[in-house]
Amino acid sequence: MDYVSIYVTLKLALITTVVLMILGAPVAYILAYAKFPGKSMIEAFLYLPTALPPTVIGFYLIIALGPKGILGRSWESFTGDTILFTFLGIAIASVVYSIPFAIQPMKAAFQKIDRRLIENACVLGLSKSKIFFRVALPNSISGIVAAAILVFLHSIGAFGVLIMVGGSVPGETKVASIAIYEAVEMIDYRTAGLLSLSFLPISYIFLLIANKLNRDT
């Protein structure tokens, strides 16, 4: 069985989740509470990955990360390497692909917090960032864990965007979903079946946990 591709998948999903939780939480908090012009336009832009075909996202990422793109060119002048067809490349792609799945549930979790708690913290003299860490985060923690699980599961399932940006380099960018596709193409149903089967318990258990957390909040 292709353990390497499962390892790459899990590593990718874990990194995506951690990165998106750290970057996404403040953004979700701002979207939940702040009022500023252009907010709905920014929000719609962040949610675009849910509305676009993964290959379209992949295409734009190739442009951005490629040797002529802004990100790709500066990375290349900095390190001498390309980003496309590397683990870093698919990690970026995976993060972009899952942004809405992090922001939307975290925003909902923050909005569920009783507004009066935030106001009380304001009156008690806490700055906005302290309110975020001392009041908002602890009182929305189960919603945030549920968001993390959704992001993790969504990253495990990524396919189109990853194959566009990363191709299928074994041990580097060949994730399990791509390995399954390739196995089926080669009519190796045994490998495809085993890999597919390994997804079932992971996804099912994580969904159970996510649902339970959402019920509790």
Binding site: E119, N120, V123, G125, V135, P138
Partner: peptide
């Protein structure tokens, strides 16, 4: 509000759970 340094007791439910 942070700089007014006042105390505010609301009707209910403002202790941090």
């Amino acid at each position: 509000p942070q700089k007014r340094h006042l105390g505010y007791v609301f009707q209910e439910y403002t202790l941090f759970p």
